[in-house]
Design a protein around this nucleic acid. Structure first.
Lengths: 256, 256
DNA sequence: CGTATTGTTGAGCGTAGTCAAAGTTAGTGG
DNA sequence: CCACTAACTTTGACTACGCTCAACAATACG
């Protein structure tokens, strides 16, 4: 277990403090959690369907995606994970995971023993509350994705996904302003939205042609934020963000 | 607050005990929770998007569905609730709900003050654990629904939904054997699977024609359970059931 | 019994999928 | 640093699954 230098787990603290106001004792206790640090390259699995989960893995930097395969081998991406996300909180108490989490970029992760998390929560109920809210927020995101995939057309789905990614990256301080990183290939975007890569390609071209976004390599520039939100039928409420996120939305609204 | 006759909350206890083994003290404490009972007719809202949630609502009998609307007014059904389900545990800590829950049939519900739930959990951590597992199971179901809607065709989606409903009803003792209640109209089935009612109608006819199920009124009879599971690419693992549910699957397997 | 809701059928259409190939970018090793 | 290769993006032609619109039949309900 690494000697704790008190800053490595800052992304986790940022996330939790955004969920539920924490006092300095609680914050210190989060930063003081024991952990084992690891790096993994793009494409590697952070956990696989069927793995036994007895730890809490936190994404310290980089991007990961959660996915699941059908019996026919088709992949559905279930969500995108950013720094600060607790990857397998969602499965920890169920014992066996029923999904995969895979690094989209090179990532740094911290493994925290489940026991240490349980002790932390027992001692600081407020931290437990933050974890609850965090998991509930994830379920809220799943619900919005169901609406997106079940009831919106291709253009709306893609615009919605782009909106979510910019708002979430803004919320954890990964970008400021309209330019941000899109760590997904068009095939992966298709897997996240229930579309084929070919159709993703054509529809993204349409969004560009409409002057809503610029896409270059894996970088996205939002040209027309109100327009993109409208195109994606997007409202950030389901992300249950507080503070900075709303500020961002206000700023973007003024800018345009 | 109703005088507690010690049996009304049995469906909740059944559900929780299925999630995490509870001793008799814990079980008694669940049954002793204060509650206010209500009935509601089919179609009425148990909560609406934007409502402030400060209680825990348990479905004692009947069926309900969770749904959300797009800006264009299309409805996506996010899940079906059976007796024993804690309807707004998913939103309780988020403050404001961002989805609707609507009765599909006449329902009996019990409102439990959030305060009482918190005290129960503080006193019996094992009950808290059961609640955690329950919410995590719901997120697992959302993930499977994402796979279903994102990556399966109409026939698979419908077969999968039928499989889920029979297994879950069996798990809470609502049916035994291949015959069960389907509390959804074809339009609602479409809203749950991302299809139009017309296409649901045609695809259900196909499943009947293939000798997999019989549908009459709002009753479903599974004719070929292995066949239906194969058609729906269904495995009940994501429901995280224990005990009786597996027994059911074994029984059905023998029968066919 | 009359009316609203739900289920069924048909015809035609369109969004998104499939297949295939060429063009581009990124990554790797010599 | 360049050559080679694999991965990703783009384009075209064609297909098909599921949607739309519309009418009618059956069922549920007051």
């Amino acid at each position: 277990m690494a000697l704790n230098d008190s800053t490595m787990l800052a992304p986790l603290l940022t996330k939790l403090a955004g969920r539920c106001r924490l006092n300095s004792d609680e914050a210190d206790a989060v930063l003081a959690l024991p952990y084992r640090q690891e790096t993994a390259r793009a494409g590697s699995h952070l956990h696989r369907q069927g793995d036994r989960v007895d730890r809490c893995t936190v994404l310290l930097s980089g991007f990961a995606c959660r996915n699941k395969f059908t019996g026919e081998g088709a992949r559905q991406i279930l969500g995108i994970h950013l720094q600060g996300d607790a990857i397998d909180l969602q499965n920890s108490l169920l014992g066996i995971t029923d999904d995969n989490v895979q690094a989209l970029t090179a990532v740094e992760i911290a493994h925290i023993p489940l026991r240490a998390m349980e002790e932390l929560v027992a001692r600081y109920p407020n931290v437990g509350r933050a974890l609850w809210i965090d998991v509930l927020t994830d379920t809220s995101i799943y619900r919005e994705w169901l609406v997106n995939i079940g009831r919106r057309d291709a253009r709306q789905r893609l615009a919605h996904l782009l909106c979510e990614l910019v708002v979430r990256q803004e919320a954890v301080g990964l970008c400021s302003g309209p330019n941000y990183h899109l760590p997904l290939t068009q095939e992966q975007i298709g897997d996240a939205t229930g579309l084929t890569p070919v159709h993703v390609n054509r529809t993204l071209q349409r969004l560009r042609g409409e002057g809503l976004v610029e896409l270059y390599r894996h970088s996205v520039t939002v040209i027309d934020w109100p327009g993109l939100q409208t195109a994606g039928d997007f409202s950030s409420l389901y992300l249950h963000l507080t503070g900075p996120a709303q500020d961002f939305e206000a700023a973007m609204a003024l800018e345009n």
